[in-house]
């Protein structure tokens, strides 16, 4: 018959061990988490040469399973294509990251931004201006 105290001692060992380790609990919001590099948070439109890299190819709205991306293309003075409208409805986004994967020009990324709570539904519509990468 095994010693009935062995499991108790084992358990207490772990408890004592943790007394001397760094705590896991974060005192959010005073303390902030450090999110992983691959974390899929709020989207950002990458900027290059002071312009959004997005060429309005419509691949991200096409691939998006939640159908939450709206793109409208425009023609600029050089007859080139740009996103005259780029909008993501964060209430519907499921953070799958397919849009980032689909982008042929690497114009879209997902940031570590996760604090997306808000008061009004309209505040969840992220327009192009709001999505542009902040430097």
């Amino acid at each position: 018959m095994p010693n009935p105290f062995t499991p108790i001692i084992k358990g207490m060992k772990i408890t004592f061990g943790h007394l001397f380790k760094k705590p896991v609990t974060l005192m959010y919001p005073e303390e902030r988490p450090k999110v992983a590099e691959r974390f899929r948070g709020l989207h950002a439109l990458k900027v290059s040469h002071d312009k959004a890299k997005c060429v309005a190819c419509y691949l991200c709205p096409t691939v998006c399973p939640a159908k939450c991306i709206t793109v409208e293309a425009g023609e600029d003075a050089n007859h080139d294509k740009f996103a005259a409208k780029y909008e993501i409805d964060m209430l519907r986004c499921i953070f799958c990251g397919y849009c980032v994967e689909a982008c042929p020009v690497d114009a879209l990324k997902m940031t570590g931004e996760f604090e997306l709570a808000n008061y009004r539904r309209t505040d969840f519509i992220y327009t192009k201006e709001r999505l542009l990468e902040k430097k």
């Binding site: 309005a56 190819c57 419509y58 096409t62 293309a73 425009g74 023609e75 294509k81």
Partner: peptide
């Protein structure tokens, strides 16, 4: 029709 829509849409 330039840039108005993708064909598949």
């Amino acid at each position: 029709f330039k840039f108005k829509s993708r064909f598949w849409a």
